[in-house]
């Protein structure tokens, strides 16, 4: 990840917010050129209908904004989208996640919940194997999902962090894309939340990577950012060819690994 430019846009956006009298203007199109250069400097990104984003027009809670990303193109097509960046333009740290798809997904669709600090466009930028970029954007009105104050009961937080829960939708249809839901217990501290006890900022603490395999073969992996909400939620598709096991490995930004296994029966 290009961390320095990200820090730079984070501060640029914070400064612009602190100088603007009305923070809750409608989602602004003005931020994207800056954000785009930070992630995809000098590259051309083509708007595309086959990438779709769904979300609320106005979020009920900036802390948990439900969004669904769909790629209307088979993940085994020759020009398949291999990875998708999900970016919230106006968040202090814009990257919510990068989803890496494989043909074993069967269908490239992700539902997740993201944080939104203020009204913003969210961008989904898809990349093909040969590096071509396509995008779509959706404006969402929201408030207050990134900052604020957090509890600092470190022991309690660490005791449950990394617990996972998987729900497989049944009946399982072999040879077809099946939906599944993964939940990971984790505070996903943004690094922008103040700690009431110390008065300083609570260091970022988040799940950074999730890897999913089925019978030992990679199905997908996700690079998560702190734009993904507390207790990350991922609804995705996998295509099992036979009964077997789904393995999930999650890694946090301190390098700690958590694993979970689910049996997929006929």
């Amino acid at each position: 990840m290009p961390t320095r430019p990200l820090m730079w846009i984070a501060s640029a956006i914070l400064i612009s917010l602190s100088h603007s009298p009305v923070v809750f203007a409608e989602a602004s199109e003005a931020l994207w050129p800056v954000v785009k250069e930070a992630f995809f400097a000098g590259k051309n990104i083509e708007p595309a209908d086959f990438i779709r984003l769904e979300g609320p027009r106005r979020a009920e809670s900036g802390a948990q904004v439900p969004v669904t990303l769909t790629i209307d193109k088979a993940p085994d097509a020759p020009d398949a989208i291999k990875k998708v960046y999900l970016i919230v333009d106006a968040n202090p740290i814009p990257l919510a996640a990068i989803y890496h798809f494989t043909p074993l997904n069967g269908k490239a669709q992700i539902s997740t919940r993201i944080r939104m600090e203020t009204d913003s466009y969210i961008h989904a930028v898809g990349e093909t194997a040969d590096g071509k970029l396509y995008m779509t954007a959706l404006p969402i009105r929201a408030a207050g999902g990134c900052g604020g104050l957090v509890d600092s009961d470190e022991a309690a937080i660490r005791a449950t962090a990394g617990k996972m829960k998987v729900n497989l939708e049944e009946p399982i249809k072999f040879g077809e894309p099946n939906p599944a839901t993964l939940l990971i217990k984790h505070p996903m501290f943004t690094g922008l939340q103040r700690d009431l006890a110390s008065g300083g900022y609570r260091p970022a603490f988040y799940i950074q990577k999730v890897e999913l395999t089925y019978n030992g073969k990679p199905v997908m992996h996700v690079d998560l950012g702190v734009g993904t909400s507390e207790d990350p939620y991922l609804r995705f598709f996998y295509r099992p060819d036979a009964p077997g096991v789904m393995d999930i490995k999650a890694t946090d930004n301190e390098g700690k690994e958590f694993t979970h296994q689910v049996e997929v029966k006929g």
């Binding site: 923070v23 207050g144 900052g147 604020g148 104050l149 009431l196």
Partner: peptide
């Protein structure tokens, strides 16, 4: 007092808006 401190920033911002 703690609840107020936690929400001060966002309440001031939202209510101004």
């Amino acid at each position: 007092p703690e609840a107020m401190e936690r929400r001060k920033e966002s309440y001031m911002r939202n209510n101004m808006a």
